[in-house]
């Protein structure tokens, strides 16, 4: 996975500052700002509707913010010279059209990103979909779809992984796979930013924690700092968001 010689050149700092997003009269984000660093898994936690997905979509250039910046190595996602080799994103579902096979999906993404097509079988292998590559995405289970999304994100072997609710709806085996996988990525010096509303599932996976509620960041720091005097992350979380 980690090619020799590139560990030293890896960067991938995510810097988000002062994001404001309104939809109609409703303010979804009110000055969201935090940082995610290489070599760490950063958990972006908050209840449903707190603004996690909006923040990540703005970071990925999918949605526009009214104010603030979301930068990767100092530049917005859309201005990255080589986006697919810098950032991999896992958003809702598989991100693939149901009438294509998993392999056909990965092939067009590889072409769009200027990546060698040999990567397609490598990532299928990596996420455990080697046997399902010729199957249509419409016939995938939820867990398989999520694995395909992860495979897509990994095509460019990026220094940053951004994942929105990656363990949502997965079976225990799938959750364990994702956890182990993300820990390994961080150990290899990559940046991992994942959002979740499932606190208990994440305590063993994350190094740093950012807590969002009603469009505002209510806590951030290392897992130990945010947990503080509380018994565990879950307790700390409910204490923070019920204020």
């Amino acid at each position: 996975m980690c090619r020799p010689g590139d560990a030293g050149s890896l960067s991938g700092v995510i810097t988000i500052d002062g994001l404001v997003k309104r939809r109609g009269a409703k303010e979804i984000l009110s000055g969201v700002g935090f940082e995610a660093r290489p070599g760490r898994v950063t958990g972006f936690l908050g209840p449903n509707g707190a603004g996690k997905s909006s923040t990540l979509r703005i970071l990925l250039g999918l949605d526009r913010a009214q104010a603030g910046t979301a930068l990767i190595d100092g530049v917005p996602f859309a201005a990255l010279p080589d986006p697919v080799r810098t950032v991999g994103a896992v958003l809702d579902g598989s991100g693939a059209h149901r009438s294509r096979t998993g392999r056909a999906h990965l092939r067009w993404v590889a072409r769009a990103g200027g990546l060698p097509l040999s990567r397609v079988d490598e990532v299928l292998e990596l996420v455990g979909l080697a046997d399902a590559g010729a199957k249509r995405v419409g016939g995938y289970s939820l867990g398989m779809g999520r694995r395909l999304a992860l495979a897509t994100a990994l095509l460019g072997d990026p220094s940053v992984l951004v994942l929105d609710e990656p363990i949502n709806g997965l079976d225990p085996e799938g959750i364990r796979f994702v956890r182990t996988f993300l820990r390994e990525r961080a150990r290899a010096g990559r940046t991992v930013l994942l959002s979740s509303h499932l606190m208990g599932e994440l305590a063993e996976t994350v190094d740093d924690v950012v807590v969002i509620d009603h469009g505002r960041i209510v806590a951030q720091g290392s897992l130990a700092e945010v947990t503080g005097a509380h018994r565990n992350l879950e307790e700390a979380f409910f204490a923070l968001v019920s204020r």
């Binding site: 990925l60 250039g61 999918l62 996602f77 859309a78 990255l80 986006p83 697919v84 950032v87 994103a89 958003l91 809702d92 579902g93 598989s94 991100g95 693939a96 059209h97 149901r98 009438s99 999906h105 993404v109 769009a112 990103g113 995938y140 289970s141 939820l142 779809g145 999520r146 999304a149 897509t152 949502n168 709806g169």
Partner: peptide, 26 residues
Amino acid sequence: SSEYFTEGAESGGGRQITTSLTAVPS
């Protein structure tokens, strides 16, 4: 329309356009 076709809720409700625009941000 294939870019905007939404997967069923049971498969996560994703759309291909997000994949497309994260591969080609311009």
